[in-house]
């Protein structure tokens, strides 16, 4: 059972924070989400979070031509996470690498529990995540944008999946790590969840945390997810707003 804690032992505000960008320990980077940005995709979303810029396109449900992938009782959800060569300071060699193959897989696994795949047997839903600019936490940004794009495509879902990271940097447990905090910091803990039920669909960690720090980090990440979730819903409604 996940408990959402309000800042209890640590007083809030920047005065207690030693973060490089001056954020409070439980403050997200500036966030912007818009839905339905691509003309030809069935659903799409664009997300900016701090220095991250992510574009997601969803196609489907559509015909699956690869026979051995076909599921007789449900659709398959295929994800492709890709970083543009110009998304990082040193040019990234284009094409899939070990990191992006892993993120593609965990993205698909993070989204699958929320989607009613059984409504479209023998078909496929394709999700393409393009990272245009990266500044730490792109997998969370990708998952967050992907679920907005899925909703925009009219795909039935139990909930809108949302992702956020927490971690430890400079000896302090903080929400939504930036690139510098991720690289220099002691630990990174990205999670994805369904905000209504609180079910966690992704939990990864690298670095070292004590048991107590781990729980604080999870609580912080969940709190971040709740905030982002509101923005997701707003973005979807705004698309059809007046």
């Amino acid at each position: 059972m996940i408990k959402i804690t309000v800042e209890s032992d640590l007083s809030t505000g920047t005065e207690t924070s030693a973060r490089a960008d001056g954020r409070a320990f439980n403050e997200l980077r500036p966030l912007k989400i818009s839905a339905g940005v691509l003309e030809r995709a069935d659903g799409s979303a664009y997300l900016e979070m701090g220095g991250n810029k992510v574009l997601v396109a969803v196609y489907g449900p559509r015909e699956l031509h690869i026979r051995h992938m076909m599921q007789p009782d449900k659709a398959v959800l295929r994800c492709r996470y890709n970083m543009a060569p110009f998304s990082v300071d040193d040019r990234k060699r284009p094409g899939p690498d070990r990191r992006s193959v892993e993120i593609s897989k965990i993205t698909s696994e993070a989204l699958t529990p929320a989607v009613f795949l059984e409504k479209f047997p023998r078909s496929t839903i394709d999700v393409f995540i393009e990272v245009l600019e990266a500044e730490g936490g792109t997998r969370c940004a990708g998952i967050t944008a992907a679920s907005v794009a899925l909703a925009d495509a009219g795909i039935p879902m139990r909930d809108i999946v949302v992702a956020c990271a927490a971690g430890k940097s400079n000896g302090q447990v903080v929400m939504d790590l930036s690139e510098a905090e991720d690289k220099e910091g002691e630990a990174d803990l990205p999670i994805a969840m369904m905000p209504r039920t609180g079910e966690i669909t992704l939990l990864q960690m690298d670095g070292h945390l004590t048991g107590e720090e781990f729980e604080r980090a999870i609580d912080l990440a969940v709190e971040g997810c709740m905030k982002i979730s509101e923005e997701q819903k707003k973005a979807i409604k705004e698309r059809y707003g007046d």
């Binding site: 925009d152 039935p156 879902m157 139990r158 209504r196 059809y240």
Partner: peptide, 16 residues
């Protein structure tokens, strides 16, 4: 159409 039941509530599964 476009809804589902969970526990004692009816929820939307779509944008609509």
């Amino acid at each position: 159409r476009g809804t589902f039941r969970e526990k004692n509530n009816i929820l939307s599964s779509l944008v609509g």
